[in-house]
Design a protein around this nucleic acid. Structure first.
Lengths: 240, 240
DNA sequence: ATCATTTAATCGTCCTATGATTGAATATCC
DNA sequence: GGATATTCAATCATAGGACGATTAAATGAT
């Protein structure tokens, strides 16, 4: 069953397989998974591999093994929501819009605060690291006036670099990591989202305003600009 | 070596053992751990157990295994900071004060926002769930005027219950989980901190103000009250 | 000197056997 | 008959050994 083409480790494949089945409800909460031997047969892997997969899933809060009774699927309230994988899985197959709104709520909170901190604390080097992807974004969009040859994937990567640079500049690695993880989770889940170049061109103005405020050391301005950006994100969120 | 008294699983013991040695610098960043056979001998466990431990540590971002070269200790920038274990370990043996300040910074951000959301959204049931531990806190402190028989551990648990109830009432499980995890990490790391009953009695007023605002649906008031509480925490943080 | 080949170290995977834990069935005793 | 102790069986937990896959480094060929 395990396709030869995967370069990921076998246990990662099995882990995701089981996780998705839990997410989809194939293995309902509060019930037990098939026992280890059965799972090994089903997925055609050794017990060692299976156990590595389940250990990690345990750590993510999806399951909990007990001798004699089996491996229990944990209720959603136990899931480790700021595990990058869980977040991605949940956004992909689960509640969709409602949860996405909650993630966005937290992202706005975190990233705006990071912007404020960045304005207060960042160094010239860090300012340059923020400026560079910003310029690239602007270039890509002006070059895209003809409508065609616009590489959306690349644009997303550059946009990500811009925001990551700001979070790094907050000098609070905890803040940065929360923000980056959530941004990545959302990115991978909603890839093909805003294809409207015009909307993106609008948003560049706001990006630039955010950068200018950080550069000027204007903490409140940076905070406000970041909130503004998220207001736009909020508006483009799918409506229920 | 593994003490028989542990009820934790063996791999958890080994995992923590290795993690702490990484934290303490016994296994420096960018170097490789001893190979699997050597580690098995050293810790007197089977390879399966060792591998379960390393899989989880990989997931936490502390190490990364590659064939032929070995298991590399990852730089701190790769560590999964909002993994509850990593957070606890880091607070226990690592940078201490500086990192604690950063955690507190994020906690204030998260918990205050949660308080705001709770004020806007919480149900009567949830209000009751917040009120109960608050009353208990007050009782414990008034009963403690004689100075002696004050159970600090219990008090901490009740205080935790109060704040957890608020975060639950935010109706954003993501927000709640970030807040709760950080609070627990800090709790286990700094247990014996404020033993001054008088300080606690002061803080009850602020707790009550926070509760009243939530009960009244006063979002801004709840937010402000929460910030005030954290200002007090901030003042009692060890000075460098 | 450059490139291809071989080698060896290490992790990756599989297999089988045995131990430990614990819920449930059974037997014992009052 | 009911409570308590005992036995049983299912499941995970741990051990140990064997072989495969990957790849950095040593070696050899051009």
């Amino acid at each position: 069953m395990p396709p030869k083409a995967y370069h990921r480790k076998l246990y990662e494949y099995i882990m995701e397989e089981i996780a998705l089945r839990i997410l989809k409800g194939d293995y309902p909460s509060e019930t037990t998974l098939p026992n280890e031997d059965a799972l090994c047969k089903e997925y055609q892997v050794s017990r060692g591999v299976l156990r590595e997969a389940t250990k990690v899933l345990t750590q993510k809060g999806l399951i909990q093994a007990r001798p004699k009774v089996g491996t229990l699927v944990q209720p959603r309230s136990n899931w480790n929501l700021f595990d990058a994988d869980v977040l991605t899985w949940k956004l992909q197959v689960d509640g969709k819009v409602e949860f996405l709104r909650k993630v966005t709520e937290v992202r706005r909170l975190i990233e705006s605060e990071a912007a404020r901190c960045a304005a207060e604390r960042c160094s010239p080097t860090e300012i340059a690291a923020i400026a560079e992807p910003l310029e690239e974004m602007a270039e890509m969009l002006t070059a895209a006036t003809d409508g065609s040859r616009f590489d959306y994937e690349t644009y997303l990567a550059v946009d990500m670099a811009f925001h990551m640079a700001i979070m790094e500049a907050s000098h609070n690695e905890l803040l940065a990591q929360i923000g980056v993880t959530m941004r990545q989770a959302v990115l991978s889940a909603r890839r093909l989202d805003i294809h409207n170049v015009k909307v993106l061109q609008e948003s560049v103005k706001d990006h630039r305003r955010l950068f200018t405020a950080i550069q000027a050391g204007d903490a409140q301005g940076a905070y406000d600009a970041s909130r503004l950006l998220f207001d736009a994100v909020w508006r483009h969120l799918p409506q229920r």
